[in-house]
Nucleic acid binder design. Structure first.
Lengths: 318, 318
DNA sequence: CCCGGCCACAACCAACGGTTGTGTCCCTAG
DNA sequence: CTAGGGACACAACCGTTGGTTGTGGCCGGG
């Protein structure tokens, strides 16, 4: 199916005459006739009843019309999503089910008129490059890597600390605990496939391991979170970390347990990063929304690496 | 833009390699390469970074991908809307802003998983023909025309009486009234352009006129409800009737008044019509929903033509 | 009764989109 | 270091699609 054909159908339905639609589309009447005939052949139904005074929609045509309009709107949105200048606000998140996604959903609920696109970049380095180049407008990340401060033209503000939780199967030794301390985790095998060395999230777990003497294995290929949860559920000796705000869609009955970690509570600090000179109007709206809704992060009793935290106070918004 | 191209883009993005996408789509790798190149040329952005080990999405590609998926879903829905057998439930309503539309919105809220298509047919005659032929599954209508009973294979049940209200401009003689009696309307000019003789809705107003001695003018071409409201707002001597549940979207400040009519209250009786043998599963759901939510229509103090009311009690649902 | 408006059909032609064949790049294995 | 293989791009070729022009049929109005 061709969108030009759908456009032709909508134009003909609105005009009520093929000729007029043809004039609008700058083609001949015959072309419109052929396009409609082809569409009717593809769909297997008659869309118009031809009369000597024009063409009017059949019942099938009436049913098809709103779907055709929606199709064209979707096409427009798709094109707009990559249009240079005045495109939807484009935001990078760590992963599709973490805390940043929740913040973006909340923002979307508060401002449903603002078009959003969410992308997931590889690491902070590429995110910063994309923010600087203007390819994305903002990024939710831990702000830096050890020894690599943010460039001057990138601003950041800490928006959310996401507590880490332990995820275990029902047969795991800690499965029955209401909560566990970091010290209790020493000696247990924690499996996090897909942890790529050199990224800021790998650095976060490196620091966590170094600080508290944990055992984190990043071995094996990452077959996705479904496969990971599958293995965790079935393997008593394995557990994994998961963001406390991650939404897990998992069939009931597998007995997966989410257990808060305390003493201290490791948190993954999400900051919003953006370019100092980014003119996108929705960016200011997003920052205002985050400033208004961000729960004050209480540092007492939590742990995060120093380098991962945005310390700079952004200038007050204009 | 061609939907095959979009499909190719999605397949390539999912596969991560043009070759694999080509195999899925049963074309050659070169064809996929050309399609993607054409799409990138059309959009003016690069969607993939080609590597010796495949192709991965650029940031623009990532932003475009969900829109592309939505585009394909919209196309599927559009095709499904006219697919013979197992298509969305197709319901005819009197007009897009009347009581029946409200009922369908309520049904959609209660059963968001059921796909619906709403069409508007010309009159009860065509609606009955469409219901009998299976072109539509149900119709909200006053059930008949004077002297023309429903065929045996069409069942009906009264679902909602929509009270008529008077619509006037701010300078109309009745503009200040909290309510008006039918007797008070005698002598006032009531304008209803677009009332086509021979339809069941025209017959309804004919009966209203005959019973209470009103003056209804159907003169002049119908330029749509916007133009009608415009004229009503500006003409002190004119008023019109409007369904009491009609949603009027009208800029504030024009001072249009909606005035209930009493003694008796004229109501437009909407019944659901459907074919005895229609097997669409959602039709039973719709009937159950209407039976559960329909407010009992209190006949006391209301008026409607005899012929317009469904008297038959439908058999209990299986 | 003829004219005019509108749509469908036929013939023709250009351009698009697919295939085959080939080149280049890079990673990996030996 | 080299050879091989996997992956994508480019070029040439060709059939089909989709456009145009020309024409005919149908129906309503003057």
């Amino acid at each position: 199916m061709d969108l030009d054909t759908v456009r032709t159908f909508v134009a003909a339905a609105d005009a009520g005459r093929f000729q007029e639609a043809a004039a609008e589309l700058a083609v001949t009447q015959q072309a419109v006739s052929k396009r409609i005939a082809a569409l009717e052949r593809d769909l297997g139904v008659r869309l118009f009843t031809r009369t000597p005074r024009g063409a009017e929609l059949t019942i099938d045509g009436q049913a098809f019309l709103p779907h055709a309009r929606e199709l064209l709107r979707a096409a427009d949105r798709a094109v707009a999503s990559v249009r240079a200048g005045r495109r939807p606000l484009r935001v990078d998140v760590l992963n599709s089910r973490g805390a940043a996604s929740g913040l973006m959903r909340s923002f979307h609920r508060a401002h449903p008129d603002i078009d959003l696109d969410v992308v997931m970049l590889f690491d902070i380095e590429r995110a910063v490059a994309a923010v600087r180049s203007g390819a994305i407008d903002a990024s939710f990340r831990a702000v830096a890597m050890p020894g690599r401060p943010l460039p001057d033209d990138i601003e950041s503000v800490r928006v959310l600390d996401e507590p880490l939780q332990l995820l275990t199967g029902p047969a795991h030794a800690l499965a029955g605990a209401r909560s566990v301390t970091v010290a209790q985790l020493a000696g247990h095998r924690i499996w996090m496939p897909g942890l790529v060395p050199g990224t800021e999230w790998a650095a976060y777990y490196d620091d966590l391991v170094a600080e508290f003497g944990l055992t984190i294995e990043a071995t094996g290929p990452n077959f996705g979170s479904d496969a990971l949860l599958d293995t965790i559920a079935d393997t008593p000796a394995l557990a994994t970390f998961m963001g406390g705000q991650t939404r897990v869609v998992w069939p009931a009955g597998h007995g997966l347990r989410r257990i808060p970690v305390t003493d201290p509570m490791p948190v993954y600090p999400h900051s919003l990063l953006w370019h100092r000179d980014n003119p996108h109007p929705a960016l200011a709206t997003l920052r205002a929304h985050l400033a208004a809704t961000a729960a004050g992060h209480d540092a007492a009793g939590t742990w995060a690496p120093d380098w991962a935290i945005s310390r700079r106070t952004p200038p007050p918004r204009a």
